[in-house]
Amino acid sequence: MKANTPSERLLNGIIKENPTFVLMLGMCPTLAVTTSAVNGIGMGLTTTAVLAASNLLISLLRKFIPDGVRMPAFIVVVASFVTIVQMLLEGFLPALYASLGLYIPLIVVNCIILGRAEAYASKNPPLPSLFDGIGMGLGFTLSITCIGAVRELIGAGQLFGHQILPLADAAAGKMGYEPITIFILAPGAFFVLALLAAIQNKFKLGAAKRGIDPSNPDKCGGACASCGNSMCKGGKHQ
């Protein structure tokens, strides 16, 4: 497929360079808000909106921002969009606003957004950058909705707020599902992500054994260190 077309960018973000499972970026919201699938979708779409808008604006401004102050400039752009989105959510979707809480303003420090601004939007024309933002955002949304769905199903027997597995009721002598509550609490987030990462490792190992190059753009090495590095590069220019 031709590079930098809108559809190529969408697929790249959703599958090839999926920010959560392939690049391992933005771990804080991934673990914090995935107590249910609905929260996952809400967080994912909010991040997508910020990512698409900031990618578009940064790409439009890429010839005007001096190289030395680009990191602070990116941060201001991202923080402005986060503030706008936060106000819109507070006004129109108060329930989602309440359940995501502190993690909405914290989208500012989500590595995915600054990472895409630095790696893609600051070097490419507006249209592909917009679709790069949408693709990455949808990839993120898809992954955290999956994690949220797994946690919700195991931890409460529900999916998107509907009871899927009938609960046991000892008083009525009814057999059923005993929810494993720990999966909704903090440790469950670590366990689910650990299992998903292990499954991914397993596939990579299999691919490596068959002699296929496991194209692993593990840019951040499981941490935001390299985003931090790009940050400090930006800082040093000042």
Binding site: M24, I182, L185, A186, P187, G188, A189, F190, F191, L193, A194, L195, A197, A198, I199, N201, K202, L205, G222
Partner: peptide, 19 residues
């Protein structure tokens, strides 16, 4: 186990610490 080396085992450790 091979698949759990690196990132996954660190996450499981973190989960146990959280408990």
């Amino acid at each position: 186990p091979e698949a759990f080396r690196g990132f996954p085992i660190v996450l499981i450790t973190a989960g146990l610490m959280a408990i």
